[in-house]
């Protein structure tokens, strides 16, 4: 443990974990305590818990943006590394997930700037999307594939909004903060994106799923 930690307060639960190192207790700590433990007490297991909690959605978002699973995982790893280096800068004013989404989105934008050709859809991008065939009927599976393709084909500014919106736990103001857009623009993007998605789906002749 670092010796310079006296000025960083911890909750009683976090302090207890620090003494006993009980893995189960770690899973019950809130994000902000895990951040403090990781940043100021060099507790790698606390950071691992943060990664475990948030990796699914971060990787999912980047998969949709990058349309390539390997690339998405590389970008997600970079995002978590950046987050790790900047943990002290997280003050807990926003949710940790919002802060992390913003880092991930910036990592993606930086990557896209570095490699301009990624703006075009890579060959076989549909195979990069999740494949849920095992649990779906053939028609649902076809619909899902087309839906994946429709989301991938959305203009990028809409795709990010749609992804964050349908993740369900991200509010409009949080989407605006993550994407650095005015709230009104987020709503407009979402409205247009939903219309575009429906046009795609109708264009493919899909009807309701039941």
């Amino acid at each position: 443990m670092a010796s310079h930690t006296a000025t960083i307060p911890l909750s009683a639960e976090a302090a207890t974990w620090l003494r006993k190192r009980d893995p189960q207790a770690l899973t019950e700590l809130p994000d902000i305590e895990l951040v403090r433990l990781s940043a100021h007490y060099n507790a790698k297991r606390a950071f691992a818990e943060l990664v475990r909690r948030h990796q699914g959605k971060i990787r999912g978002l980047l998969l949709r943006l990058a349309s390539d699973r390997t690339l998405a995982d590389d970008l997600a790893q970079e995002a978590f590394l950046r987050a790790y280096r900047g943990l002290v800068g997280f003050q807990g004013r926003a949710r940790f997930s919002t802060w992390l989404y913003r880092i991930a989105y910036n990592v993606y934008l930086n990557h896209r700037t570095r490699v301009k050709e990624l703006a075009a859809l890579p060959e076989g991008f549909e195979s990069g999307a999740p494949a849920p065939e095992t649990s779906l009927s053939q028609s649902r599976s076809d619909l899902r594939k087309d839906l994946d393709a429709a989301i991938s084909a959305l203009p990028e500014r809409y795709r990010a909004v749609v992804m964050l919106y349908y993740l369900e736990d991200v509010s409009y103001p949080e989407i605006a903060e993550i994407l650095d857009l005015p709230l009104g623009t987020v709503k407009t993007h979402l409205h247009r994106a939903k219309k575009l998605l429906r046009q795609h789906m109708r264009g493919w002749g899909h009807r309701r799923r039941r």
Binding site: A48, G56, G60, P130, P132, L147, V162, L197
Partner: peptide, 27 residues
Amino acid sequence: DELELGDSVRLADTRDIWFTARVVEAT
């Protein structure tokens, strides 16, 4: 459509224990 879109996005939310290990190793 809304439910299908929601399911589609949620399916992209996949977890991988090796990913966590790789990130922690990289730190």
